[in-house]
Write a protein that binds this DNA or RNA. Structure first.
Lengths: 198, 198
DNA sequence: TTCTACCTTGAATGATCATTCTACGATTAG
DNA sequence: CTAATCGTAGAATGATCATTCAAGGTAGAA
């Protein structure tokens, strides 16, 4: 089929590098020059492969949800105790290196894309966020059925609190150098009403 | 003293306009051309009055904390019931227009200034955030003394949860068009252990 | 080997960026 | 009124931006 040489770079590796950069600095503050340097490819290759900056950014967000987010939240459905799984996610966030914490890419995007500004981007991120909220809701409903949780709180409301606390803690971790806040959030959530254990 | 004419614009009004713009789009995505248009002054006046873009941004953040944030969180110390005051703040956030919600400017800044990237900005925002956390902590300590809150949870941990949930809900409100999440967060927080009423 | 196709490199492009400069207009003291 | 002074407006500047173009190189097919 192909006559000439194949690409000399790995698309996944390039995406990963682009993700880390956008994750650190956001869309507007990331230049093509930096992207080329970190992704290790020239301008032409970048444009031939990914289209343009915005399309690359959209692919990066997909890459993020398919790798980072999915890996983190899959445990909600698979683990024995959904309540412990949910609290483990907060713990994981809290344990990441404070001081050079990148937070959550979805949060970074939300901070720069208002719905009225960039409708397409906002809708996409909102959908990804709803996946998280739904996964948490399902987990808490399962926890209620298992009797892990007393029926004082609505499962969806709890999921919403977790989602907001998760995003907030991630965001704040970008500027704090100690992990005190995330740890406190984690402890407070673990003591929610009905969570009898621990 | 002055021989020539005085300034033809109100500095506070100009700051307010700049704040709204940075609040919507963040630092990097906001251009001087837009700032001039929205603030209603020419390039020279802008630079003579505020220095440069970054200095203007720093002044905008101060303006934000002195007006928006302060007005919102002062009720924690003045109102009779600190617990109700804290929950009212969440309610206030939830009630804002969904769909064109700007969130919290501090959150927008955190999303684009990692500690390792822009140390000065990160430290300043972190300090402002700690003011909020401390105000909430004091409120919850007072609530414990007043017996509004059962001593199952540490006051500071509760404050941390509120701070994170507040930032997270604000952030998510930028992309969601309905206020369901903020309302859910508000309900869940109101049902925290020890909060007997409602 | 030789040709062909594709990838890479790096310079060119035009737009837009933040910032500064120049000229004009308005105000007030004398 | 006149002159001095300060604010304003908008053009000029050089840097940097995203994007495209032109040229060379390399791998595989014949």
């Amino acid at each position: 089929m192909s006559r000439g040489p194949n690409k000399q770079f790995d698309e996944q590796e390039a995406l990963q590098a682009a993700m880390l950069l956008f994750w650190e600095k956001g869309f507007a503050a990331t230049s093509l020059a930096e992207l080329q340097a970190r992704m290790g490819l020239g301008a032409k290759s970048l444009y031939d492969t990914f289209g343009n900056k915005r399309q690359l950014f959209l692919r990066v967000i997909s890459h993020y949800t398919e790798t980072v987010t999915r890996k983190l939240f899959d445990s909600l459905a698979t683990r024995r105790s959904p309540l412990k799984a949910a609290n483990n996610i907060m713990q994981t966030v809290a344990r990441l290196d404070a001081g050079q914490h990148r937070g959550c890419l979805l949060g970074v995007v939300m901070a720069q894309a208002q719905r009225s500004d960039d409708e397409e981007l906002a809708v996409y991120v909102e959908a990804q966020l709803r996946v998280i909220e739904d996964a948490l809701t399902a987990a808490f409903e399962r926890a209620l059925q298992l009797g892990e949780l007393a029926p004082v709180l609505d499962a969806r409301d709890m999921a919403r609190l977790y989602t907001a606390a998760f995003q907030g803690a991630n965001l704040i971790a970008r500027v704090r150098k100690d992990d005190g806040l995330s740890q406190g959030v984690s402890r407070a959530l673990a003591a929610l009403p009905g969570a009898a254990h621990r």
